[in-house]
């Protein structure tokens, strides 16, 4: 795979198909956490980290355990269950979420030991990453719902770029919401509703990226 292919993946995941503004993934923490810039950056970095790791591990899971041995030629369990068994539709949800939950727990344990300051800064947001649609979404988009079979590097790269795009959108939103807090908004629209209107406008501007990478 050449550089332009990788660049297309990166640009695509950050701008053209921004996970938050175009694919609607990761909205739950977006509204809850993006009120202040420092929280948004912290959450964004943690999510990016988990997304990259999750992309890598789920790719391995998909290619070496779930896909039938007949297709890939290297299913670890083929000696037990045979070459034709396609476990993907049955096990993808459960195994992917197990991977993600375990990864988040691992990240929490490691961070607590290595950087207690960062751990304290992220606080409750760390366990919330488990239920982040973006993490599970990117795992699915890399494997089962991908337009073509991705290589390990492509999948991990897409996970990383998706996280960066997510963080960028959260940063934009938090900067706007900080200023919005001082503005005179009608009482019923204060808070979440007007934040959504702003998101609509940002999403509208991001539509301008569509078509830059050619068809598809």
């Amino acid at each position: 795979m050449n550089i332009s292919g990788y660049a297309a993946i990166i640009f695509g995941s950050i701008f053209v198909n921004n996970f938050l503004l175009a694919r609607f993934l990761g909205l739950c923490p977006f509204i809850g956490v993006s009120k202040r810039t420092d929280e948004a950056v912290g959450m964004g970095m943690a999510v990016t980290f988990v997304m990259t790791l999750a992309s890598a591990v789920t790719w391995l899971l998909y290619n070496y355990l779930l896909l039938p041995g007949a297709e890939t030629g290297h299913n670890i369990m083929s000696f037990i269950m045979g070459n034709e068994v396609n476990l993907v539709p049955i096990l993808k949800n459960v195994s992917y979420i197990l991977v993600i939950a375990a990864l988040v727990q691992l990240v929490e344990i490691t961070m607590r030991k290595i950087s207690p300051a960062l751990y304290r800064a992220l606080g409750i947001y760390l366990p919330l990453i488990t239920t982040n649609c973006a993490v599970m979404g990117v795992a699915l988009l890399n494997t089962t719902d991908a337009p073509r079979r991705f290589s390990f590097v492509e999948a991990t790269l897409q996970g990383f770029a998706a996280g960066i795009g997510f963080m960028m959108a959260m940063l934009l939103m938090s900067a706007i919401r900080e200023r919005l807090a001082l503005a005179d908004v009608p009482r019923s629209m204060k808070g979440v509703p007007v934040a959504f209107i702003c998101t609509a406008l940002i999403a509208l501007s991001f539509l301008g990226f569509a078509g830059i990478l050619g068809a598809g």
Binding site: R187, S188, P193, V194, F196, I197, A200, L207
Partner: peptide, 17 residues
């Protein structure tokens, strides 16, 4: 498309409030 979704939800939340 995406912007329309956010817009409708924002206005709906405002109406609910």
């Amino acid at each position: 498309m995406a912007p329309g979704a956010f817009l409708v939800l924002g206005l709906l939340l405002g109406a609910y409030n």
